[in-house]
């Protein structure tokens, strides 16, 4: 009887679960579907889509927007964006994880005050610090330079990531790394490696945050890069899709096609790493 009750409850639970998820997925992807349709449209404005055109009609579709995008310097911009995003990811993840471990496991005097102080500094919005930051970067020769940009992107993600790593490492019993050390691994290495492996979903999350932040940024790079050869996709997007001239709007179909091509590397990132984000935690290897 008890088992029966659970069975009914299980069916109900799964039905509700999938129903809710279906609604959420629709909400999440509808605007993106809208972008996809617009990218194949012959018209360049929002009047291109009506309710009836939400059902794709091949005869009304054209690849001209994609051809236009690919005839631009898309490959150069893509390379630049990936370089920036991967650089940011590497710096942010390393700094965040090392700091997170130090905050969680090491005894550091004055730690509390330091943490609060660093945290409050990050409250200032980018818009409030952009001009002074520009001036200091300018005197250091960091304008039109990816190293400066990577530092800006990494700083925000790293501090957030450090606190996140710290919180999660705190929830991991200390016995794990101590057990590993008894196994005879190199002490220092094992200390970080074990924690890294246990905290991997969080580390991957921080990596994703860093990658997306740098890859999709417009506000920062628009100020710090003016040289065409250093343009990223976001700057290229603005460049390609706006027709220029004071009174004109962006070409929405070109804009959409560009943003879809631009989204492919992020989707690739997901496909590669989503198993870590959704992976069930296992104890294997730590015993």
């Amino acid at each position: 009887m008890n088992i029966n009750k659970y069975k009914v409850f299980d069916v109900l639970r799964w039905t509700i679960s999938y129903f809710l998820i279906a609604i959420v997925v629709l909400f999440a992807i509808f605007p993106l579907y809208y972008i996809v349709l617009t990218s194949f449209s012959k018209l360049s404005s929002i009047s291109a889509l009506t309710l009836s055109s939400l059902i794709p009609n091949l005869s009304n579709m054209t690849l001209s927007a994609y051809q236009y995008v690919l005839s631009s310097q898309f490959a150069l911009w893509l390379g630049n964006s990936l370089l920036l995003a991967v650089g940011t990811l590497a710096v942010a993840v390393t700094v965040a994880f090392v700091s997170g471990v130090a905050l969680a496991r090491l005894n550091i005097s004055g730690k509390k005050a330091l943490i609060v102080f660093l945290y409050i500094l990050t409250f200032f919005p980018f818009t409030a610090i952009v001009i002074p930051l520009y001036l200091s970067f300018s005197s250091l020769g960091l304008i039109n330079n990816y190293i400066g940009l990577i530092m800006i992107y990494a700083a925000g993600t790293a501090i957030f990531g450090a606190y996140m790593s710290k919180i999660f490492i705190d929830s991991i019993p200390k016995e794990y790394e101590e057990a590993a050390m008894v196994d005879g691994q190199s002490r220092f290495k094992s200390f970080f490696t074990i924690l890294f492996r246990i905290a991997k979903p969080v580390v991957i999350f921080v990596a994703l945050l860093a990658f997306i932040g740098a890859y999709t940024d417009y506000a920062v790079i628009n100020v710090f890069v003016t040289q065409g050869s250093l343009y990223t996709l976001m700057l290229g997007l603005y460049h390609v899709s706006s027709i220029g001239g004071g009174a004109s709007a962006v070409n929405l179909n070109v804009f959409s096609a560009f943003s879809i091509l631009m989204g492919l590397p992020i989707i690739a990132f997901y496909v590669v790493f989503q198993k870590y984000l959704t992976q069930m935690y296992t104890m294997s290897g730590t015993k």
Partner: peptide, 24 residues
């Protein structure tokens, strides 16, 4: 955004024959 000019909403109505006059 996306309203003014030839590539905006104004332009696409005009260019698709759904509006007779635009100011550009």
């Amino acid at each position: 955004s996306g309203v003014a000019g030839a590539s905006g909403l104004e332009g696409s109505l005009f260019e698709s024959g759904k509006a007779a006059i635009i100011f550009d």
